[in-house]
């Protein structure tokens, strides 16, 4: 068990932090939601009722979708775009999808390469882009979920203020949906851009996200 925890420390720690912060969001969310209800002359709702509301679902999904968009864009953009001096970037001459030899595919596959690499054909082509594709699929799924849950939450608010509910398509072109979406996208783009450029001049000793401390600013890539 200790060996399992040690070997998966990074994923398990963030998984635990995710659960803890989601619980925190539920408690803070119901308190905020009830403040609004009381101000509108309505009875407060329980925590259980709040975490099974479309309002909670929309709040969760609108943040998830932007994270997966960020990773999808970053994974594909870093194949083609470089940032001189960044630990997040490849060196300029490695731009693009690189050779089969560098990527260990085709006749350069190794005995212990993943099965779909050794299989060749469409399976290797698909597997070669699987990380980006899964991030794209998760972005599209979470964005759709955020739209559906946001629609439910929006219509509940419409009914609370005695206004007409909107259709799903109506919600997709409504300012509420785009405000929820874009306020999350903008923060992700800023964070990614900051990471790309800050890692040129700043260091974190021992982190694989940083170049080694003594590496010159002009050196690009993980190895410095």
């Amino acid at each position: 068990m200790r060996r399992f925890l040690f070997r998966n420390g990074l994923s398990l720690s963030f998984g635990a932090l995710f659960v803890a912060t989601l619980v925190g969001q539920a408690f803070a969310g119901v308190a905020d939601f009830n403040d609004n209800r009381v101000a509108n002359g309505l009875d407060p709702i329980s925590l259980g009722r709040f975490v099974t509301s479309s309002n909670f679902g929309a709040d969760v999904m609108e943040n998830w979708q932007s994270e997966y968009l960020q990773f999808f864009l970053y994974i594909f953009a870093t194949v083609w775009l470089i940032q001189l001096g960044s630990s997040e970037s490849k060196e300029a001459h490695k731009r693009g999808t690189e050779s089969d030899e560098e990527q260990k595919v085709g006749k350069y596959a190794q005995a212990d390469s993943p099965a779909w690499v050794k299989a060749g054909g469409w399976r290797t082509t698909l597997y070669s882009r699987s990380l980006g594709f899964v991030m794209l699929a998760l972005f599209l799924l979470t964005w759709t979920a955020s739209a559906v849950a946001g629609w439910g939450a929006f219509n509940n608010e419409q009914l609370m203020s005695h206004e007409d509910p909107v259709t799903f398509v109506g919600y997709l072109v409504h300012a509420d949906f785009w405000n929820r979406t874009l306020q999350n996208w903008q923060s992700e783009m800023l964070a990614v851009g900051s990471m790309a450029i800050f890692s040129v001049y700043l260091r974190q000793r021992g982190s694989p996200e940083s170049k080694p401390v003594g590496t010159p600013h002009k050196d690009t890539g993980q190895t410095g």
Binding site: G15, T52, S54, W64, L138, T142, W151, N156
Partner: peptide, 30 residues
């Protein structure tokens, strides 16, 4: 690598459950 694969599957299940759960809340109009 068995333990690592278990964590990988756990993440996928957690994410897909979250997506399904939140979509259902919206569809039910809760």
């Amino acid at each position: 690598m068995k333990g690592v694969r278990a964590v990988y599957v756990l993440y996928l299940v957690m994410i897909l459950f979250g997506i399904g759960y939140c979509t259902a809340l919206g569809l039910l109009g809760r």
